[in-house]
Design a protein around this nucleic acid. Structure first.
Length: 276
DNA sequence: CAGCGTGTTGAGGA
DNA sequence: TTCCTCAACACGCT
């Protein structure tokens, strides 16, 4: 998947392409993609609604219709493509769903790993607990977040700080690549229990979260493995990564060897000397 | 062949 | 009960 910067990039592109387009029909080829409602209800609801806009809430992509929201999560490998029906920008066998639009184009969802999800919720029910976007914490690059808020949260948690950064229910939008980068720049050891961070470390971590995510968004996200925001396009942030994927390379600050370990089941890269 | 991966969730243990 | 860890999801790549 795409991490937050990739999702933001995708939303900007989709919003430009889809704003005010009417949905005429919907087809689904992989039933598990749609969490709810049933295919029949989903189809009936989306037909003849216009897409008002496309935006993101953390890593969720939200297609705002007139009465409903379609909430998409790409997980690891999902991708949306706006294209002519006869042109498949990606392997047709990986096509999971498509919307037929009034202008003759289609909006297609491809996912080779089949992890992504799609659901529809009416605007009236958005505040209900069922909405996935109600289960996530504030977005990490939100300028309104305060150090004291984050400090209070961290003070109650004994888990390693890296797994806390990845916990979307506490703070949203940080994925594995950026968690590694944030902790590297903030010089914090990923294993450090969250409640042992000093106020200065929490401040640095929050500031770097903002800087790194916004910087990555500016560069169109990170192209790593197969991710590309749209056919042909790709992000440029991978050229700025300082620690993710750099195991056995020299730390850009102190020259020590970057190590890779598994932490909370995820690849974790850090400098054992200057992140202590 | 085994392990890994841009993400999340639910089960089960402490 | 709360906190935390880890397997599972599906599939291609090394």
């Amino acid at each position: 998947m795409p991490e937050l910067p990739e999702v933001v990039t995708v939303c900007e592109i989709l919003n430009r392409q889809l704003q005010n387009q009417m949905i005429l029909n919907f087809q689904i080829y992989y039933a598990k993609l749609l969490l709810n409602p049933s295919i029949e209800v989903f189809k009936t609801k989306v037909q003849n609604q216009k897409i008002a806009r496309v935006y993101n809430q953390a890593k969720y992509i939200i297609f705002e219709l007139e009465d409903d929201l379609i909430i998409s999560h790409l997980r690891m490998e999902g991708r949306w493509a706006y294209e002519k029906p006869e042109f498949y920008s990606y392997n047709q066998e990986l096509l999971e769903a498509q919307f037929e639009l009034e202008n003759g184009y289609v909006l297609r969802y491809y996912d080779f790993r089949r992890f992504g999800t799609l659901e529809l919720i009416s605007k009236a029910d958005v505040k209900s607990l069922q909405s996935p976007v109600n289960k996530i914490g504030p977005q990490a690059n939100d300028p309104n977040l305060t150090v004291s808020w984050w400090q209070e949260k961290c003070a109650k948690i004994r888990r390693p700080i890296k797994t806390v950064l990845l916990d979307q229910s506490l703070i949203s939008g940080i994925g594995n690549i950026y968690a590694n980068e944030i902790l590297y720049v903030a010089k914090i050891n990923p294993h450090l229990p969250a409640n042992q961070l000093t106020a200065q470390q929490v401040e640095k971590m929050l500031r770097q979260s903002r800087i790194i995510l916004n910087q990555a968004i500016k560069h169109g996200g990170t192209t790593i493995h197969s991710f590309a925001p749209q056919f042909g396009d790709s992000g440029g942030y991978q050229n700025f990564l300082l620690v993710h994927g750099k195991n056995n390379q020299n730390c850009s600050r102190c020259g020590a060897k970057i190590v890779k370990e598994m932490l909370g089941g995820r690849g974790t890269y850090y400098c054992p000397i200057c992140q202590n």
